[in-house]
Design a protein around this nucleic acid. Structure first.
Length: 133
DNA sequence: CATCTGACGACCG
DNA sequence: GCGGTCGCCAGAT
């Protein structure tokens, strides 16, 4: 049963408090999901309905709502209802990013720092990308 | 078994 | 800030 594999993800998402959000990246790191954020995204894409999983509280690393059609408009509405502040089409992660276990200790979200590692130039291997025919 | 496909995120121009 | 590309990994074809 594939749902069992993602159960930890749904259990974690269910614990996100009202008015708070988690990024796909954060979910992946907390659960040590191999493959990182995309794996978290895959799990969310298969979120079972009727299980009380607040899927709208999982957003992109930059606070963007990545839910595709035909549900694209739902998260925004739901989050607004929960009092989530937004700058344009983004959520203020500084205010609403949830840190498991520190919900009532500190309301400040830890500033996420990007590694300053340099990477070798990237090869542009086109892997049958949807392009113009 | 070989490929393609994403509810991502990092980089690049 | 935006759009295109690549690495990642489990499912679908």
């Amino acid at each position: 049963n594939p749902f069992m594999s993602w159960k930890p993800v749904y259990e974690l998402v269910k614990q996100i408090p009202r008015g708070r959000v988690l990024t796909y990246r954060a979910v992946a790191r907390i659960l040590h999901l191999p493959g990182g954020a995309r794996t978290a995204g895959r799990a969310m894409a298969r979120t079972p309905s009727g299980q009380g999983v607040p899927w709208h509280r999982v957003v992109g690393a930059q606070g963007k709502l990545l839910v595709p059609e035909p549900y694209a408009s739902l998260p925004r509405k739901l989050l607004q209802t929960e009092g989530i502040a937004m700058r344009g089409s983004r959520i203020d992660l500084k205010q609403h990013l949830w840190t498991p276990g520190k919900g009532k200790v500190s309301s400040k979200a830890p500033a996420q720092r990007r590694a300053t590692l340099q990477r070798a130039p990237r090869k542009k291997k086109s892997r049958s990308r949807p392009g113009n025919s």
